[in-house]
Design a protein around this nucleic acid. Structure first.
Lengths: 223, 223
DNA sequence: CATTTGTCTATACATGTGTATAATAAGTCA
DNA sequence: TGACTTATTATACACATGTATAGACAAATG
């Protein structure tokens, strides 16, 4: 019925009979993003749904992606780039250690509410989904951790307050922020703000703790 | 074809022609658990799959659960109970603060590899799935946090090392451990062990950090 | 211009899904 | 025993999904 009505529509309208002249990977990716929501993650949307949302025939999908999996990985990588870019920008607006933390977390939370559901892809379902998917998410997280670790080391030596195991500090911060971010996705603005505050305290704990342990044991193992 | 072969089988065998005399919620729940795996989470398995695994007709499912959702929530609650029980037990085997942390994390990681995939239900996909599902997971986490907070307060006052915002320490620990646990699910035993070590250091950071902040600002707000 | 090539669509098929309906077996109690 | 209730199954329907095949149109090429 739907198809019939659609055909009739197209016939009656002045359209040069139904055809998309040029279809982009881009078009498909943004169509897929539109489908994501509080209860829909990448691995629960179907190829046909994406095609429908992009306004193309199901089979046209294959011209651009081999799989839904390939689409998913592409989305993750784009999300990773975007997020790193945004955070990097946030860091440049601030210089002292506490303000860097604050502005990074703030922009992170802002992005959660942004129209493009890119972050959704990263935060949800890193633990389910295909192996390719999980691996792609893991790579983004690791890159994030590395970048953060560099920052932490630089800042803490500048402040004469060296850290014990800055790699683990970076990892803990990353995992914590991403986990809580995923939880905050469908919460209200005030709730998001409250969660952001909590994140900041937690990050502070991690850094102060690492600092304290350094004072006790230096950078060596904890005996 | 499958059905025909099956019927033939059953006819040839000495079975009193195919019927399950008594079916339990229990049977269905454990059948569902068996289906979970690195790439299959509760919200990606179908009612029919569960019925098949339990050896019952699809419709029989409805006599015991209204929904797959109801099944999922039941599984989560059971997982929460089990986990709390196990951890409580671990805590009683140890008394000093560091050893409690160690034994709790160790038993947590042990449970990850246990045959029953209960933890899987809690760790994966807290951020996708139905609202009921998410709410159930959230409740388990919160209970966990509360119990942990009590412990933290008790231990830290005993040790004369009070904490700043023990609630946030508990929340951070919980979220961190669950997030990293979800990641560790399909990793090898050594990897799991390494991750457990990382967790311990992170938890240590959080506690030492909270302690340090308390020394600086007391239990009041951070000015 | 004609031809070829690449892209998108239409149709079709086999399979999986949730669930409605009716039939059947098991359990219970007179 | 027989009647009644309850739990399980069989059959069926109306979808949705991934993808194979073949046809139609546009752009590129000769």
């Amino acid at each position: 019925m739907t198809t019939i009505a659609l055909e009739a529509n197209l016939a009656e309208e002045s359209n040069p009979p139904h055809r998309k002249p040029h279809i982009d990977r881009e078009d498909i990716m943004s169509a897929a993003l539109k489908l994501l929501g509080p209860n829909r993650s990448v691995s629960t949307i179907s190829l046909r749904e994406v095609a429908r949302a992009a306004g193309i025939a199901p089979n046209s999908f294959y011209r651009h992606f081999r799989d839904m999996d390939e689409l998913a990985v592409a989305l993750i990588e784009r999300a990773g780039e975007k997020l790193r870019y945004v955070i990097r920008e946030a860091r440049q607006r601030a210089t002292t250690a506490p303000s860097i933390i604050r502005s990074s977390i703030d922009t992170f939370m802002e992005q959660l509410g942004a129209e493009e559901q890119l972050l959704h892809v990263l935060l949800c379902e890193g633990t389910v989904g295909s192996d390719a998917y999980k691996q792609a998410v893991e790579m983004v997280l690791t890159e994030f951790e590395n970048e953060l670790q560099e920052d932490l080391v630089r800042l803490s030596t500048e402040a004469n307050a060296p850290l014990h195991r800055p790699d683990l500090v970076a990892k803990a911060i990353t995992r914590l922020v991403f986990a809580m971010g995923g939880n905050a996705l469908d919460k209200s603005l005030e709730e998001k703000r409250a969660i952001a505050e909590q994140m900041m305290v937690m990050v502070l704990f991690l850094m102060e703790g690492s600092e304290a342990v350094f004072k006790q044991h230096g950078s060596g193992d904890i005996v």
